[in-house]
Simulated scan of single mutants.
Amino acid sequence: MKDWWQLNFPKGRQSLTITDANGYPVKIAYGEVGTGKPLFLFHGVGSWSYNWRNSIKPLSKYFRVICFDAKGYGFSEKPVSRRETEGHQVIEFVRIIQALCNEPVVILAESLGALTALAIAQENPDLIARLAVINVPIFAQKLPHWGMSLLSQVPLELIQTIDSLRLPYLFSPLVREVMAIERRSVLYNPSTLTKEDVYWITYPYLEFSGTLTKVAEELKIAAQEIECSQKNKPNWLTKIQSNLSNINVATLIMWGEHDTWFPASDGNKLHQHISNSRLQIIKECGHDASSDASLIINKNVINFLKDTQFI
């Protein structure tokens, strides 16, 4: 299989070192293509830059597209010896943007990445020129999948042992099959998932020790945030919800009509909280919108940026 990074970015996979939320240096994998104003792509939980495979080249005709793997995901460093706290990605994403750009950027973000983008728009509004979010878990009532719930409950020490023994790699055919089944479940049209897609989606889990551990850790944080929210205890998720009206940047909200993880009604609710926003419900689209409806998403983003006089 040809190197995905080399195929999509002129310089292939590049590396950037930032200081993470814990104060330690961490290497972030990224790629960039195109010229012009910067547009960042944020992936969701358990994913990596590959999820944007159908948007990178089309958007690079208009922008300098920058795609990176969050700490712990994809090809970025996975510091399993250090525990994370809620909101760490906000700090780290801001530092990535500041390291690569010296002007306000466009952010196109999906799922957990979109939740992080909303928090950045609240805390660092000067960094964002335009914002586009897809299927945001902003009003989540629970972890949306049984596998996520299971991972969030397993002791991290056990998962770290599984990772260190390279068990996912040893059982790679089974891992690929299970993840293919689960990925198809969040697609409106499951037949669009190819063998190449399955290969690259599962690649970090099979090849890089620590991937499963860091994803499980993020899910534990998410489960705790949702539980605190339901019990009216102070938490990061509720803080973002409470400050949505403070987001003033022009915002495009896109939602898959058939998102079984977070209903399209959440998109309407989010739209009502952000005054300078527009909502587009995408038909024939599930939760994995960047795969399901990339042509529509690319078109919507370009039209939105033209309408708001950004291009």
Rank of each mutant, 00 (worst) to 15 (best):
K2Q: 14
D3V: 15
D3M: 12
G12S: 10
G12Q: 08
D20Y: 13
Y24A: 04
Y24W: 01
V33W: 07
K37R: 14
K37I: 15
G44Q: 08
W48Y: 12
N51I: 12
S55M: 06
P58F: 03
L59C: 06
S60Q: 02
R64Y: 09
A70M: 13
K71S: 04
K71P: 04
P79L: 10
S81V: 02
T85M: 14
V90K: 00
A99P: 09
P104R: 05
V105M: 00
V106I: 15
V106F: 14
V106Q: 03
I107L: 01
T116W: 05
A117M: 04
L118F: 03
A121F: 04
P125A: 09
L131D: 10
L131G: 12
L131C: 12
A132Y: 07
K142A: 09
H145K: 01
S149R: 12
T161A: 15
R166D: 01
S172N: 02
L174M: 07
M179K: 02
E182K: 04
R183W: 07
R184T: 10
N189H: 11
N189S: 13
P190Y: 14
E196M: 10
Y199R: 09
W200L: 01
I201A: 01
Y203M: 06
Y205G: 02
Y205D: 01
G210M: 02
T211M: 03
E218Y: 11
K220Y: 12
I221T: 13
A223G: 06
E225H: 08
E225Y: 08
I226D: 08
K231V: 14
N235M: 13
W236M: 09
T238E: 05
N243T: 08
S245G: 01
N246Y: 13
N248E: 15
A250E: 12
T251P: 05
T251V: 07
G256T: 08
T260A: 12
W261E: 11
F262Q: 09
F262L: 05
A264V: 14
S265V: 05
S265G: 07
S275N: 15
E284T: 12
D288W: 07
L295Q: 07
L295H: 11
V301I: 11
T308H: 11
